[in-house]
Design a protein around this nucleic acid. Structure first.
Lengths: 312, 312
DNA sequence: AACAATTACGCACCACGTAAGGATA
DNA sequence: TATCCTTACGTGGTGCGTAATTGTT
């Protein structure tokens, strides 16, 4: 029920570009121009100074922007408080997540949440951490899930998942029948890796370094950007790999892939939920975040359960 | 640029009636129902409890109302501040006034103000003091002009005009050529009066009492509810009457009516400008009020000048 | 019966997108 | 030429009023 004109105006004021703002709010550039024009005609004054290549707020625009932010905040606040009162959970949530969470964990959470609250609508963007953070800061998404913690004055981050990366081998691999392997045995063993810069890759390398192994010395049989592709490669004996349990649950159940315990340690990485500090979240967002936090032990339990089952 | 839905909602919430609210905002009842329905569907909850004969806000409605008032106030505030900055004076002002001001003083002020600020639009309602105050409290008008001062916790009143009531006689009347008459001479002289309850009537009676004359003893030749009618009566020698100078300026200039000085005293009454205490006035309203205050000496001067000219 | 709110429906207007136009580096 | 904003124009959706319907005292 927010004021769309003010929303458009604020976006333009913040992005300092009609065209870029139009993309963010999914409108055409002329539509944005038109909205601003209406505002300018109403207030009888230019709100933006149009110099070539960049626009800036006029003094009038500054005033309106100050009020517009407050007004929009009140709209959001009203909606949140009414939502809290009625307990109604509805409306859209735009999520962004890195591939592991976005591909395997979030879809289940989203489905369960949507099952409980059919009036909710999810949009999910999957990309790397930087992209997710960018989208969050530009209000392209409402909530993000990334590995590690994100520091930034505009973003709050909070750990929610403890995701374990399990060593995966083909069913026919010699390790498949062993109760566990030492970290040192990974040296020389052909491994399938995620690309440089991927969170999984970083976690694996940190793990190796922690146990005195130089990642550069690893026999990297293949580098793949897709989890699905890695599973294929592992199944076909290209090499072993570290993967998140939810990502290979089906293959492990079917016996096509086996998980092997690392004797000395477990490779655990933390996922964080991130959201804009200042923006007033909706009641539905509050509910979803709380749902995710409640669900995270369950997610871990599922993962571990499957792991126990798969490795015995 | 305010949010029309919220405006409608607030009006209904305050008036506690769809149909009455629809009259105030000049909308049909179905339109109001529709607006509220949209809000209720958006927030997923009833905002009004519809019991027969009267409606009341639900808890959700209470929340929304609290926010809606603030939001509307911010819209108005933004507009006012931008208006102050740009110095632009535009938009509508709804005035209410008693007959003397509404009929003779305000039209000139409105015209002059409109001449300086062509983007302004005036609406003028003329009625007695009670009607004007009612309209003001129900937001039917923005500014009112009434005789005396109005006390009320929701209304601010401020004196602006010192309007003098002059004794008017027909050109052929014996007094017309005299430099002045004593108050006592009014006893027995046929007088034309405004109706009971009129501000002018009250002022005249207070004046008589002040000078030791019982109003009941006055020879009331005619009681008329219209100033124009009184002027006709005076011109035709029905009797003398007290009238505001601006109301008879043309007749005095044309010599059809003469003003006669009262020797001991002058009959001066005060007009006040009244407006709602809490409601955020627009910049244009501020400008108009300040214009009226500036103009009030001019109005008096004009009145006196004409008086001097007419009585000599 | 009478009053108040809702539902049904047709129309007019407004905001959008597509396409063309202008200005500046 | 490429980028960015504005203008022009046709169309679909929305909000209004009129009229009929429901519901309550």
């Amino acid at each position: 029920m927010e004021d769309y004109k003010l929303k458009v105006f604020c976006t333009v004021a913040e992005i300092k570009s009609f065209s870029k703002a139009s993309e963010i709010i999914h409108l055409t550039q002329p539509a944005v121009s038109s909205q601003i024009k209406v505002l300018e005609e109403f207030y009888g004054t230019k709100l933006f100074e149009r110099t070539t290549n960049n626009i800036s707020l006029t003094p009038s625009g500054e005033i309106l922007y100050k009020y517009a932010k407050d007004i929009l905040a009140l709209y959001a606040d009203a909606e949140k408080n009414i939502g809290r009162l009625t307990g109604l959970v509805k409306g859209g949530i735009r999520l962004g997540a890195c591939s592991t969470i976005g591909g395997y964990i979030l879809p289940r959470l989203m489905s369960r949440f949507h099952g409980k609250n059919p009036l909710t609508k999810f949009t999910l963007y999957v990309g790397n951490t930087r992209k997710v953070v960018d989208l969050l800061t530009t209000s392209g998404i409402d909530i993000g899930f990334v590995e590690g913690e994100v520091k930034g004055h505009k973003i709050s981050s909070e750990k929610v998942f403890n995701d374990e990366l399990h060593l995966m081998v083909a069913a026919a691999h010699p390790w498949a029948s062993r109760p566990g392997v030492a970290v040192s045995e990974l040296e020389g063993e052909p491994m399938v890796m995620r690309e440089e810069g991927s969170g999984t890759r970083q976690a694996v390398e940190r793990f190796l370094v922690k146990h005195g192994i130089n990642p550069a010395g690893i026999n990297t049989a293949m580098v793949l950007e897709s989890i699905e592709a890695i599973k294929e490669a592992v199944e076909n004996g290209v090499g072993v790999s570290f993967l998140s349990m939810p990502a290979v649950e089906n293959e492990v159940r079917a016996g096509r892939i086996k998980t092997v315990r690392i004797l000395q340690d477990r490779l655990i990485r933390e996922f964080s939920i991130i959201y804009r500090k200042k923006s007033v979240s909706t009641h539905t967002m509050e509910e979803f975040i709380s749902f995710v936090k409640q669900s995270s032990p369950a997610v871990k339990a599922t993962g571990r359960l499957a792991h126990e089952a798969g490795s015995r």
